[in-house]
Amino acid sequence: MDALLEPLLVPFMQRAMIAGAVVGGLCAMIGVFVVQRGLSFIGDGLAHAAFGGIALGLLLGVSLERMTWVALPFTVLIALGIGYVLRRGSLRGDVATGVFSAVSFALGVLLLGLRSTDGPQVNVETVLFGSILAISPDDLITVGVVGVVTAVLLAFTWTKLAYATFDPELAALSGVKVAALDYMLLALTAVVIVVAVKTVGIALVSSFVVIPAATAKMVGRSIGRVALLAIAIGTIGSSIGLILSYHANVASGATIILTLGAVFGLALLLRRR
């Protein structure tokens, strides 16, 4: 048992465990609404949009460590743009997300090419697949602040957000400010995605949003229970995945997602019985 928990004694693993658990819980919390609204693709889309923000930061000479502060406003703007198109009702969510994310990603590629060759080297693999083991104490503070702000906002708006997710028209008739909540949810999703990109990377972050929520949805009978279950799956799955990756000496981000995938498969099998 001691050998199994040995990674908890290593400082970089401690930071990774905390960051993974917080990000896993946050993504799951957001994911409950995102999945229920049929916007699962948005996690992937906003992660690609974040790449545009990261490239913009690099062009402006910002270091990779501080890139979050450029990627954040950029990705939030993209999210709000998607929200605006959705509310206009002219396009479906997947179309709006697809267009905005593809354009942002292409912009990112273009901006990376425009960088001065004298600038710092960027490891694209780190951006794509994350580097949870390289989480610094500063990163941990960012994760903590984002975690607290997101959790508080969601806690205060939870009951209205759930009502608007079930039926926006009925919620609006009951006095719920549906438009404001929609924009808030998209902005929060963007913020959480940008922070999560650091841990599991652009390529895998949407799984962090979708898998715990989709798993919990198969089991839970009320939206409250689904949320609690999703948060537990995101948090515990992330921790277990990280410990497994340490012992197997394999990529941590991918192991976390594979762990979550295994839980999803198990839930699927149990449900069929």
Binding site: F166, D167, L170, G220, R221, I223, R225
Partner: peptide, 14 residues
């Protein structure tokens, strides 16, 4: 208000 059936998300866990 009783809406048309298609407007609400009947997969909502409730």
């Amino acid at each position: 208000y009783v809406p048309q059936r298609k407007t609400s998300d009947m997969t909502f866990p409730a």
